[in-house]
Amino acid sequence: MATFHLRDRAWRPPMLRSSSRTEPRQGASMAVLCDWAMSTALCVGVSAFLPAAVVPWILAAMLNLAGLVWLGVALTTAGPPFKRGRFTAWDGSLLSFATSFGVQAAARLGLLGA
């Protein structure tokens, strides 16, 4: 049976742990969010060179592919999908898919002028 040592830092509640352990998690979270924003910006930038009639559909397809790439990264390296208070590659995948579906919905409603 496992015993809990009161002086062991790993078993302290999160509010009693030192703040130095929470800093890298916030930095990693922001790194994932910035990487997702850069991949979305790349998709928008590439689709800007296309004819206006096909931009929404190609943009949605590229965002969907970016979501699949994020999903592949999440499956191979990110660990569990739900980490409270932290963005992971799973969240990047969900954001890419949601953005893709939003672009498709806006294109079908005629909001993008296509």
Rank of each mutant, 00 (worst) to 15 (best):
A60N: 02
A53T: 12
L71F: 13
I58C: 08
F49A: 10
L42I: 07
T40I: 04
L42T: 13
T40R: 15
W70E: 03
N64E: 09
A41Q: 15
V73H: 15
V44I: 14
F49T: 07
V55N: 03
V69I: 12
G72Y: 04
F49W: 07
V46Y: 07
W57A: 10
T76C: 15
T77L: 14
L50F: 06
V46S: 08
V69L: 12
N64P: 01
W57K: 12
V55Q: 13
V46W: 06
L42C: 12
L71G: 14
L50V: 01
A61F: 04
L59A: 03
W70C: 07
L42F: 10
G45Y: 00
W70S: 07
W57P: 08
A60P: 06
C43K: 02
A60Q: 00
L50M: 10
I58W: 06
V73E: 14
L75S: 14
T76I: 14
A60L: 03
L50W: 04
V46A: 09
A53V: 08
G45N: 09
T77R: 15
F49S: 07
T76M: 15
V55K: 13
G72S: 13
V73N: 14
L71N: 11
A48K: 13
G45T: 03
W57S: 13
M62I: 02
F49H: 08
A48V: 01
A53H: 11
A48N: 10
S47K: 05
N64Q: 11
A48I: 01
A48G: 10
W57M: 09
L71D: 10
W57Y: 14
G67A: 06
C43Y: 00
N64G: 11
S47D: 03
L42M: 13
V46K: 13
P56W: 00
I58H: 05
P56K: 04
P51N: 09
P56N: 03
A41Y: 09
A74I: 02
A60S: 11
M62R: 08
V73P: 08
L68C: 12
V44H: 11
V44W: 05
A41R: 15
T76R: 15
A66S: 12
V44D: 04
A66W: 02
C43V: 00
A48H: 10
L68N: 13
V54C: 10
L65A: 11
A66P: 05
T40Y: 11
G45Q: 04
V46I: 08
A53F: 09
I58D: 04
W57T: 11
M62E: 06
L65E: 06
A52F: 11
L42R: 14
A66G: 07
M62T: 06
A61K: 07
M62H: 07
N64F: 11
A66K: 08
A60W: 00
L71E: 13
A60E: 02
G67R: 03
G67T: 00
L42P: 04
L71V: 01
A48M: 13
L68H: 13
T40G: 08
A41P: 12
W70D: 02
G67K: 02
A60R: 01
L50N: 06
P56I: 02
L50Y: 07
V73K: 15
A66H: 08
